[in-house]
Design a protein around this nucleic acid. Sequence first.
DNA 1: TGGACTATATATAATAC
DNA 2: TGTATTATATATAGTCC
Lengths: 198, 198
Amino acid sequence: MGRKKLEIKRIESKSSRQVTFTKRRNGLIKKAKELSILCDVDVGLLIYSARGKLYSFSSSNNSLEEIVQRYYDVVEAEANESGAICEMGLDNSKIGAFLTINDLLDGVERHLEDPDQLSSTDFIHLEDQLATALLETRARKTHLMMAAVTELEEKEKLLTEENRLLQEKIPMEEEKIDEGIPELDTLPNQTPETLKFF
Amino acid sequence: MGRKKLEIKRIESKSSRQVTFTKRRNGLIKKAKELSILCDVDVGLLIYSARGKLYSFSSSNNSLEEIVQRYYDVVEAEANESGAICEMGLDNSKIGAFLTINDLLDGVERHLEDPDQLSSTDFIHLEDQLATALLETRARKTHLMMAAVTELEEKEKLLTEENRLLQEKIPMEEEKIDEGIPELDTLPNQTPETLKFF
DNA sequence: TGGACTATATATAATAC
DNA sequence: TGTATTATATATAGTCC
């Protein structure tokens, strides 16, 4: 997008490479920000200039450290994963995405079919892969649970607000009837105590 | 860029959010790739979908690992320049950890003070202790999160019921006013989709 | 749900200063 | 170098299927 179509290969001229770097770097960061806002997802972006200077972006809620840490939580050591996956003859395209449980179990089963031929090295690989799957599963579990809590909290807010609006519409003399649901008051108003910890 | 100008804020419709996420995610990854090639720089990109799936890109042929590691190198170097964190002898990963963990770590440290005297048996013992602590912590985390979800769901049920009762009390002719909270309909009715898994 | 399509918005390469 | 401009390439929002 510019006056001419640009082939995607290293720009030879140092100065235009620098200029293009500045422009596209800003564009990329802007788009990363937009994606995170529009779609309400976490995004982390790391760009190192040729001279090693770091430019980075992370979606507002989480610091880059958290996003990077989450990367470790999800993927663990990719060396382990790709090693184990190659070992098990699984599709490379799945690296970086999550293996389905079935793929994983298939791989394990194939390995276990002939147990006598398994060396301790095989078991180390298996252990790595299972550990990785465990970490991925755990990370996603935690994330989904937190998402569920957030969603429920939002819903609660909306319901409470609607409730309030409805209350206002009820003629005064009938209002006293509304004492049928006392339990509600005993519930906490916002984030449950049990979650404050996280 | 599309038929209409899009405000940069969270897309409310879940389905268009998902569609936009897919489109823009691909666009962002493409642009990250172009930047790294055109300008011959290292780029790392981490995107987590709302459900926690990781999409990533890295220009390094090795992996994001390398780029992420470089991030830590840069950050640490910056920290060393300012000198503050070094002084404290703390690394970031420990900040925010549970207090009781400190006790545990103290114990570990005491063990490690004189490493020459430690046998592999001692380490097996340590491993067991740490594994136990990890299991307990994890179990408590899961329990607390599930408890929070249950609590919120109950609260929601009560609010919805109260809501219904209030609705009934509103004279017919006023009922049409109640169209001020349309978002409510877009929320799931019971357990959030994200939790069905468990 | 998942591609195609297309009108439009945006990004940006070249240019000028 | 930096900044602004502009012509064009690209990305993508809405739409259809």
